[in-house]
Amino acid sequence: MRADARRNYALLLDVAARAVAEQGADASLEQIARTAGVGSGTVRRHFPTRHALLEAVFRTRIDALDVRARELADRPDPRAALIDWLDAVLAFAATTRGVAEALNRDHVADPGEPHEHCATARLTRAGDPLVRRAAATLTPGVTIADLLTLVTGIALATEHHPDRAAESRRLLHLTITGVSPD
């Protein structure tokens, strides 16, 4: 990337992160371009789809969740490891505006749109080993996709709660009791 393209990318990413934090996953791409002082074509060159933009905005946190899953993979209690990781995913989804919307959209996106780098695909790859290790403690048939859908639903359901973090954790633990009775 040329120096000006790198600067534009960094500026767009910064502006987009602020816009998504304020307006959620539906932040206007045209407004992001105007705020960054570039044309909408520049936004589209760097981020050809809304999914690509959201993935870039959330990349650092998704990377940290991937690392966390690997750290927990060898924990002696696989159920506790899975719950710890799901709690971290939910904390991210419930406290970072736009994440739950982005995860929800990943499930219903156009089949032609590439998904290998989207948040849901990356979280699925990170969490699947934890689910496989904890399988004996889970209700038969529970998958990482199921758990991520539940986490997304909890984050969406608590979006306007006065104590979003506490309520989302409470609902997660109710959910865990249902899919993995202790």
Rank of each mutant, 00 (worst) to 15 (best):
D163Y: 01
A157P: 00
D128F: 10
R75H: 13
D110R: 13
E159K: 02
T158Y: 01
A102L: 00
D163V: 01
L86E: 04
H107S: 10
I62G: 10
T175M: 12
R6E: 15
A121G: 00
A109H: 09
H173L: 14
L148C: 10
A165Y: 01
P48C: 09
H160D: 15
A56R: 04
A157F: 01
A166H: 02
A56H: 02
A52K: 03
L29D: 12
D77S: 14
A17N: 09
I32W: 12
N104V: 02
R44F: 08
I154A: 03
F47M: 06
A52I: 02
R122T: 07
R132T: 11
V131A: 14
D74M: 09
A52T: 05
L86K: 03
H160E: 14
V89M: 05
P162V: 11
L171A: 04
L54K: 08
H46R: 01
A157S: 08
H161G: 00
R2K: 11
L13K: 06
L65T: 04
R7T: 10
F47T: 07
G39W: 02
A19E: 11
V15I: 03
I144V: 15
R45L: 12
A88F: 02
C118H: 14
R169V: 05
A52Y: 02
L65G: 05
A135S: 12
E167Y: 00
D128T: 15
A21G: 10
G41K: 08
A19K: 05
R132P: 00
P76G: 08
D106L: 05
H161Q: 01
H51Q: 13
E55V: 01
E167M: 07
R97Q: 04
D77C: 11
V108W: 15
F92V: 07
A126Q: 01
T139G: 04
R105V: 12
D110N: 14
I62N: 12
A102N: 07
L171F: 05
E55D: 15
D182S: 13
E71G: 00
D66T: 14
R18V: 07
T42S: 05
L65A: 06
R133M: 06
P111I: 12
N104I: 00
P129F: 11
I83M: 09
L148F: 09
R75S: 11
N8V: 08
E22C: 06
T137K: 14
P76A: 10
D87L: 02
V131K: 11
L12F: 04
R6P: 09
D182V: 13
R70Y: 04
V99R: 01
R97D: 04
L65D: 07
E167I: 01
A166W: 01
L103G: 10
L53N: 04
H46C: 04
M1R: 07
A17V: 08
L13N: 06
A155P: 09
L172A: 09
N104P: 00
